Structure formats: C-alpha cells, structure tokens
Amino acid sequence: MISGDKKKEFYQALLERNAAYEGLFFAGVTSTGVFCRPTCPARKPKYENCEFFLTPQEALLASFRPCKRCTPLSHPDQVSELVQKLVQAVEENPEKKWREKDFRELSIDESTSRRQFKKRFGMTFVQYARARRMGLAMKEIRSGKSVIDAQLNSGYESSSGFRDAFSRIMGESPASAQENQLLKASWLDTRMGPMIAVADETHLYLLEFVDRRGLEKEVEVLRRKKKAAIIPGKTPPMQTIEEELHLYFSGNLIKFTTPVAFTGTPFQTRVWDELRGIPAGETRTYAEIAHAIGKPAAVRAVAGANGANQLALIVPCHRVILSDGTVGGYGGGSARKKWLLELERGGNVWREDSKNL
C-alpha cells in the first residue's frame, strides 16, 4: 500500500512534471477517469482527485483508462511501435476479446507481443486487454449497473466466464510468491450484491463487496504482504462465511464466527478488535473508538484504520459514524451503510428500493 507521505511525494512530482519519476508511478484522476505518467502536460488535478499506482495493471483494474495526452502505455521514448499499435487497438475497442486471428490481421506475432508487453509492463498483452475489459466492467458495476449488464457489455456471454475472468485477474501470482504460500479467491453471491472472499485452508483474509472502489488494490496489498499466490478456489472458511452471510442478510445472525486473520499494523489490529466489540444495532464515533483504545488524540488514525479494514461486515466498520450523528463515509457506499445499520436494528430492509444497493 502506498503511504500518505509517498502519495504527497508523487503528487509533488506530478505537479512539477518530474521526469525522474517516469516508470515509478502512475496517477489516476477520479474526476476524468484517466491515468497519466508523472510528466503529463495536462492541467493538474487536485490532490483529493488523485489515486496513485505502482503499475499500469493496478490503474487499469481500478477502472482508469490511459490518458490520450501523455499515453502512459505507449510513450514513443519508452516502448516499441508494436506495443503502441496494440494499445491503440485496445483503446479503439476495449471490450474486444483477443484471439489468434486478431494478431494475424494486424500482422503481429502473438508470442512477440506477449514478450514485449511482459518486459515493459510486467504483464502479457492478453492480461492487459483482459484487465482493461474487467476495469470497464467494474466501473459499470460501481456506477449502478447490474452485474449481468456489466458482464455482457465487457464481452462475457456467461456469468461463470465473467466470474472466472475476475478471479484470474485477482489471482495473478507475483514473481516472489512461494510455493507454500497459497490463498484462494471466490466470488460469493449475496442478497446485497456480489462479494469476493480470499482465504487459506483455515482463515479468511479478505471479504469485500465487488463494487468497492480500490478492491483490486486491496487484493494486491494482501498478496504482497503474504508473499502468496492467489488462485480461484474454495476453502472451508469460505464455505462457512457464505453460510453466515446468508443468515446475516436474512436477519438471523448478529455475530460472525468464521476464523479470520488480520494483516494490518498493530495499531490497525487494535482498532479492528475494538470494532468487533460494537454490538449489532449500535454505533460508535471515531472519537469514542480512539478513547476506547487509549489513544484519544488518534481520531484521524482510527478513521484511517477503519478505512483500511479488509473484512467487511465481520469487522463492522459500518457501525462507526461521525460525531454529529451522520453516517459518514463507507467503502461500500453510504446508502449501503445506512441499509446495514437498519438491518441490524431489526428494520424491514428488503424493500424494492434495496435492489439498487
């Protein structure tokens, strides 16, 4: 995960168009949906509208598209003409599923493109094209479209194909992965929308709504911390949490018992333990959590730990509200946060308007 100080450093480099940072980071601009090189000549965005990525794949999976002004994936001083040609072809038709005949039509050798993309971007061309399509699909889901619409618009004829593609992207193994470190990722359908779970044979490490912005980065952070490969599959903790989620959304469960493992700092873990102690149907403020852990001045740090939670619902960060009584932010969206609080208070939440959450 990129630290706050590093983000400020990257932002300053972006403002200065510092060429020394070329290749070290990419800047995603939430107001435009594009990601840029550090030296992009376009008007500079506000700091709060920037997200920073260490690789282009992270930016693509976060639903950003390459900037047309600075062409971060095809700058002529950095990549070959073949790579530029393929990147342009993807941008002309990002939903396209590439096959062998498509390379022949462009007079491009498929193995050469794979080798050059891997050398320049750390991923093959097919992985790049798949990430671009999945990024578009995730953007549609976040904007309110149904999963089936996003699936079809991104070129997947079956829901299983869409889920498998999502899992493959989540499961790209890092070069440093050790053979004895293996996590599995699975798509879970719930009454409140699809979620993704990542676990080993004994513990659950991640549980998030698929439409949460930054989910792909969360998975990457987990993969790096554990130095593990993440592959599609199911483990006992996933089966347990799937059953518990069904009971929870039916209003028949208030405390999760699935074994979990934290990967945060000692401070974050202390905060998450405190959050797990908030009874269902009740709320706490960030200030109250800070006092409870003996750090009354660490309200902002508590908020940061709250946002870094990777176990939605199990670590109930949705039960933390602002001091003025308003619900505040939530990674899954404020509407979903209100809905969850109402569910836990015994409200009748399964109405027609809940289908859009």
Rank of each mutant, 00 (worst) to 15 (best):
M1C: 14
G4Q: 11
K7D: 01
K8Q: 14
K8L: 13
E9F: 12
Y11C: 05
Q12I: 10
L14Q: 01
A19Q: 12
A20C: 10
A20W: 12
E22Q: 08
G23N: 06
V34R: 05
V34M: 06
C36H: 10
R37G: 00
R37V: 09
P38C: 07
T39Y: 10
C40P: 04
P45G: 09
Y47R: 15
E48K: 13
C50H: 02
F53K: 08
F53V: 04
L54W: 07
T55F: 08
P56S: 03
A59N: 07
A62C: 14
R65F: 04
R65C: 03
C70T: 08
C70I: 08
P72A: 02
P72N: 12
S80N: 08
E81G: 11
V83T: 13
K85M: 08
K85H: 06
V90F: 02
V90A: 06
P94C: 04
R99A: 10
E100R: 15
E100F: 08
F103D: 03
F103I: 02
R104T: 06
S107D: 14
S111P: 01
R114F: 14
K118T: 09
M123C: 11
F125G: 00
V126N: 10
A129W: 11
A137L: 06
E140W: 14
R142T: 07
S154W: 01
S154G: 03
Y156P: 06
E157I: 13
E157L: 14
S159P: 01
F162L: 03
F166H: 04
E172Y: 14
A175C: 07
K184G: 03
K184S: 07
T190S: 06
I196H: 01
V198N: 00
E201P: 07
E201K: 13
L204P: 02
L207K: 00
F209I: 01
V210C: 08
E216W: 07
V221W: 04
R223L: 02
K225R: 11
K226D: 01
K227F: 05
A228K: 04
A228I: 02
I231P: 05
I231W: 12
G233D: 05
K234M: 11
T235D: 02
Q239F: 01
E243H: 06
L253S: 03
F256T: 01
A261H: 07
T263L: 09
F267I: 06
Q268E: 15
R270P: 00
V271L: 09
I278N: 02
Y286V: 05
Y286N: 09
A287P: 06
H291A: 07
A292S: 15
I293K: 14
A298P: 04
N306I: 10
N306Y: 15
L311C: 06
I314M: 01
V320G: 03
G331M: 03
G331I: 00
G332L: 00
G332P: 06
A335T: 09
W339V: 05
L343D: 08
W350K: 02
K355M: 14
